[in-house]
Simulated assay, not measured.
Amino acid sequence: MKLVSFVWCLILISCSGQSFEKINGVSFVGSREEVTQAHVDPLLKIHANYAAVMPFGFMPDPNSPELTFNTDRQWYGETRRGAKQYIDLLHKNGVQVMLKPQIWIWQGAFTGDMIMPSNEDWSTLEKSYEDFILMYAKLAEETKCSVYCIGTELDEFVKHRPEFWNNLIEKVRQVYHGKLTYAANWDEYGRTPFWDQLDFVGVNAYFPLCEKQNPTVETLTAGWQPWKVKLKQFSKDMSKPILFTEFGYRSMDYTGKKPWLVDRNKENVNLKAQADATQVIFDEFWSEDWFAGGFVWKWFIHHDRAGGYADNRFTPQNKPAESVIREHYAQVKKSKL
């Protein structure tokens, strides 16, 4: 069994083309302003070696082909110019970058439900999305980003237009020469058809774990087991490492029930549940050879006023979960995939 495991590890390394540091990343949220050294220092203090930089395109509704991006009306950090400034300063500090352009639909509608009403509209969206992704692929090449993510949670788009995605990946490969991934939702990755053309199986890891108000470490660990078995087998089947393109938990009661919730609900703040769930995901995955690492969702540049003990949302900043991340990232920073 040890020999089989060793051979499998060699296959994964061979497929990635090089030996990788385990990715200890954060999702570095774009802001209205330029990022400064004071904004990067807190990221360094938790020993993050990667950050996801996330410029945005915007759509008015899930059935509209109108994708607007890189305009003067957007926040600075969500534009090409802002993304480049963020990347340059992160690189200056030795932090590698996954560039991850994303779509935001008005009022936070789920991008995975995006369906166009006609072939004409699909073609319009495809042209606009290709321009969006290729523009940032060129930026990823220009700035030597280590990883480029070609899309995030676009299940229906992928399902309805598979040939477009095959062609898009080919075009991206012509302008960007680093590692590629796609950020599939937790219930989407198993049917995403183009993993063989990418370097990582990207998963936004909001798997439901349990329905407990105050989940214990034991309950959360048990909840991960069926998902972990499937992820491990999928990695083996694809001969690709799994990358958690997003992972994290809200600091609230029932944090393991529907980890994908982004609403402004008034569930009680539960800092221990967030910290425990974060510890469990590290314990379960970071030592696995088939697992590349991941990006905490999410990290704001203004650390001094982010999160805090009264906040029930995702960021671990200024909460016990931040200490969990710091301790773990310090331990495994030099671990190799």
Rank of each mutant, 00 (worst) to 15 (best):
M1T: 00
L3Y: 11
F6Q: 14
F6E: 14
L12H: 02
C15G: 13
Q18A: 15
E21V: 03
I23K: 09
G25N: 02
S31K: 06
T36A: 11
H39S: 12
D41V: 14
D41S: 11
P42F: 13
K45E: 05
H47T: 03
A48E: 01
N49V: 03
A51E: 05
P62L: 04
P62T: 08
N63S: 08
P65W: 07
E66V: 15
N70T: 11
N70P: 14
R73Q: 13
Q74T: 03
W75V: 00
Y76C: 10
E78G: 04
E78V: 00
E78Y: 13
T79S: 10
R81V: 15
K84L: 04
Y86T: 08
Y86I: 09
D88I: 10
K92T: 05
G94F: 06
Q96P: 05
M98T: 13
Q102L: 14
I105M: 13
W106M: 13
M116G: 00
S118M: 02
E120I: 04
E130V: 12
E130N: 09
L139M: 02
L139H: 01
L139I: 04
A140W: 00
T143N: 04
C145N: 10
S146Y: 01
V147R: 05
I150K: 03
L154T: 10
E156R: 14
F157S: 00
P162M: 11
I169V: 15
E170Q: 15
K171E: 12
K171V: 01
H177T: 07
H177K: 11
T181K: 04
Y182N: 08
A184G: 09
D187C: 08
E188L: 09
G190A: 10
R191C: 07
P193C: 08
F200Q: 05
N204D: 15
L209K: 02
T221M: 06
P226W: 13
K228E: 11
V229P: 04
Q233V: 14
F234P: 02
S239M: 11
G248T: 12
S251Y: 04
M252S: 10
M252L: 03
Y254S: 01
V262R: 06
R264I: 06
N265Q: 14
E267H: 04
E267G: 02
N270M: 06
K272V: 10
A273V: 02
D276R: 02
E288R: 13
A292C: 08
A292T: 08
W299V: 03
H303L: 05
H303N: 12
Y309L: 11
D311F: 03
E322K: 07
S323Y: 05
A330K: 13
V332S: 07
K333R: 10
K334Q: 11
L337M: 12
